[in-house]
Design a protein around this nucleic acid. Structure first.
Lengths: 202, 202
DNA sequence: TAGATTGTTAATCGATTAACAATC
DNA sequence: TAGATTGTTAATCGATTAACAATC
């Protein structure tokens, strides 16, 4: 697991602890909660502009703040969802997004029978309007929720629209130029990883 | 990226190639398509019970077959979705799942106002019925699509029901005993990774 | 044959862990 | 003070890449 992935876990863990009123947390506590070694935790956290305290550990408040900052969770990001299938529609309405600073601005599809239909408070827009919309609305991130075979083509349109961040939910691998960031969150691929480990030990 | 994650990428790439009628693929071709080095590709594929051919590369048909087998994509897996929010409902109806051998058997929630409502061809079932259902239906995998704070508690019920594979979509980290396999596919965490890399170079 | 491409060994690189002095 | 816990250095481990002989 990469350090950044662990940062997202530290953030959620420390947020949960803060809600329970915990004020200090040691590297060992975090390690136990997340299945890591305390050494890994200390290494990771030592790269932050934030220090722990001997004998007490890390203050949860400060740790949450710095992790939020490092992960961009203290900023609001303007997001579109591309693909108005079941998954795309669910994501457009997903409550966890606004709560974490991801502000959904619209949902797009290229199927004419879907364009204009309602998805919660949104109307599905035509893919052809994406470039203009992305510019006008200053879109930061596009979520790709289209079938495998359409993913690269859709990505190309998004990239040409000037959007610099892509979250790819399709099973396909996406090729993007330097300066455009792509992160995969491919649910079916994760299921295949899972069944692999179930078939052949961990 | 772990070798298994790459295997899922090889599988999709080689399936796409086969659909286009490509019969042979070299390690360099695969590397170019997936943004890897040919050396990594050869290392990965050399562990499979399948050999390439000098001067020609790997036969797409054979490669697809062995990758399917290794990833468990040649088997049918019996799956329940836990959590009937927007995301859970979308997953229960997601077409990519049955296409890849994941057979959704039911959807569960613990909110009484959701229990009994329709989600496509399913009726939402009560969480309390999960243990009996999982046993009777021989459920292999549960997909956790509940809010962060409920994730561990729901996981505990699933594990107690004898299900050995968990796909966790919640932002929380899940603790499971030996022998129970957990894979994360946390969309919001992936968005945080993305915004991190957008804020601080790649 | 000559050339392309595999499979594998060895080298490099990076990430994880262990160990421990510094510190409160 | 004594003890707990950090931050950091060094050691280990594993994953990626380079190189090249084997092969068709």
């Amino acid at each position: 697991m990469s350090a950044v992935k662990r940062m997202t876990k530290y953030l959620t863990a420390v947020q949960a602890m803060r809600e329970e009123g915990v004020e200090w947390v040691s590297s060992q506590d975090l390690a136990d909660a997340l299945g890591l070694t305390s050494s890994t935790v200390r290494q990771d956290l030592s790269h932050l502009e934030f220090s722990g305290t001997s004998k007490r550990g890390y203050q949860t408040r400060g740790l949450e703040d710095i992790l939020s900052k490092v992960l961009g969770a203290d900023t609001t990001w303007r997001v579109v969802v591309v693909g108005a299938g079941n998954l795309g529609k669910a994501l457009a309405l997903h409550e966890e997004f606004p709560r974490r600073g991801f502000n959904i601005r619209g949902i797009f599809d290229n199927a004419s029978e879907k364009v204009g239909t309602d998805v919660g408070r949104f109307k599905v827009r035509d893919m052809r309007d994406l470039p203009a919309f992305a510019g006008k609305e200053k879109i930061d991130v596009a979520v790709i929720a289209v079938p495998t075979h359409a993913a690269q083509q859709v990505a190309d349109i998004i990239i040409a629209s000037g959007v610099k961040g892509l979250l790819n939910l399709a099973l396909a691998h996406i090729i993007a130029p330097q300066g455009v960031h792509v992160v995969d969150s491919r649910i079916v691929a994760s299921l295949l990883e899972l069944t692999h480990s179930m078939k052949f030990g961990s």
